[in-house]
Simulated assay, not measured.
Amino acid sequence: MPGQNYSTTSELILFGFSAFPQQLLPAFFLLYLLMYLFTLLGNLLITATVWTERRLHTPMYLFLCALSISEILFTVTVTPRMLADLLSTHHSITFVACANQMFFSFMFGFTHSFLLMVMGYDRYVAICHPLRYHVLMSPRGCARLVAWTWAGGSVMGMMVTSIVFHLTFCRSNVIHHFLCHVLSLLKLACGDRTSSVIMGVVLVCVTALIGCLLLILLSYVFIVAAILRIPSAEGRHKTFSTCVSHLTVVVVHYGFASIIYLKPKGPHSMYSDTLMATTYTVFTPFLSPIIFSLRNKELKNNAINESFRRKFCPLVSR
């Protein structure tokens, strides 16, 4: 990263799970490894199903496929580092590798939020403007929206990472985290500009993420108003059921993020900080395919089952 202004050390030490009792680490490793494999399998299954089933080539499933790809890339980037940390007492990382790690974490985090916002807009158009849905959500327009979410996530990730790594780090080189987490790294910064830079990073992140959340909530205000105008209870239930999986993932995504970034100030043990961090880095990608598979009947009962039978039981499906 350009403009780096480091102290005498050229490496950082990720303390991670070193404070935990050693006898617990194998259990944590097995748990997170199983969740990692399930996350990859679940999101790969959703992506493959949407890709192969032509009737799922609609905007809603296009965005779901993009979200699954984002979850896969985020998991592949973050989880192996955490698993490696569980196998060693501590390990070092260069500033360049730390910057790359932080960039990918921010990029996928912002991309995930942008995709959830676009999915909320898709549900808004489908329910509030059904006659114009195919015009407003054309295949080319949806592809552009997905491209803009990835571009926006990349720009935000690069901007925030560049701001952080223009600071001077002159304190301890030990990060009490299993990743180059921004809040843990900022504790090592010093200098006259530190407080203003930290405030800038917080404002950029909060503005982008809260802005996405507010737009999602605004979409659902119009969605709920449109649903309440439907005369039959069955129609209202059927219409709202198309939004449940997206709304649940939004709650999980922002709920776990607020556990980490909006926790009250005060003394926290290394145990609680590390475990709270795993809720966002491990549990959110783990829960997303479960939520979408269980709540989406078309994806669960029809597409996945038929795709599975065609791939593994071709004689039975004939």
Rank of each mutant, 00 (worst) to 15 (best):
H57C: 05
M158C: 09
K265V: 11
D273I: 15
L34K: 00
R144L: 13
V78P: 00
Y124L: 15
C65G: 06
L136R: 06
I210K: 13
T248L: 12
V135T: 15
L247K: 11
N173S: 15
W148Y: 15
I259L: 13
Q22G: 03
G152Y: 05
M102I: 10
C98A: 03
A208C: 04
E234A: 13
I13N: 13
T58R: 14
V206P: 05
V182Q: 04
Y61V: 13
I163F: 14
L188G: 06
A147P: 01
G16V: 10
L116S: 07
A66G: 00
S317N: 09
F20A: 07
P59W: 02
D85M: 00
Q22F: 08
G120H: 10
F106C: 08
H181V: 11
A225G: 10
N301C: 15
V282C: 00
L185K: 01
S258F: 14
E298F: 07
G42F: 12
L299V: 06
M102S: 14
V76S: 02
Q4Y: 08
T248Q: 11
L209N: 02
H134R: 03
S113G: 15
L213A: 08
A99C: 11
C205N: 04
I46L: 12
P267V: 15
F292W: 08
M60A: 11
V182S: 03
F63Y: 02
Y121M: 09
R295S: 05
H237S: 11
E298W: 04
E53V: 15
K187F: 08
Y261K: 00
M117W: 11
I223G: 01
L275I: 15
M276C: 13
N5P: 13
I163M: 15
E234D: 09
I163K: 14
L247A: 15
A84F: 07
S184T: 14
H91C: 11
L228M: 14
L115E: 10
T75R: 01
L33P: 01
F308G: 00
L67F: 13
L294K: 02
V316E: 12
L179C: 13
R310P: 03
N43V: 03
M270S: 09
H57I: 13
S113I: 08
L56Y: 03
S88C: 10
L116I: 07
K297D: 04
I290H: 06
Y133E: 12
L315T: 08
A126Q: 08
P80D: 06
A303D: 00
H237M: 11
V197Q: 14
C180V: 01
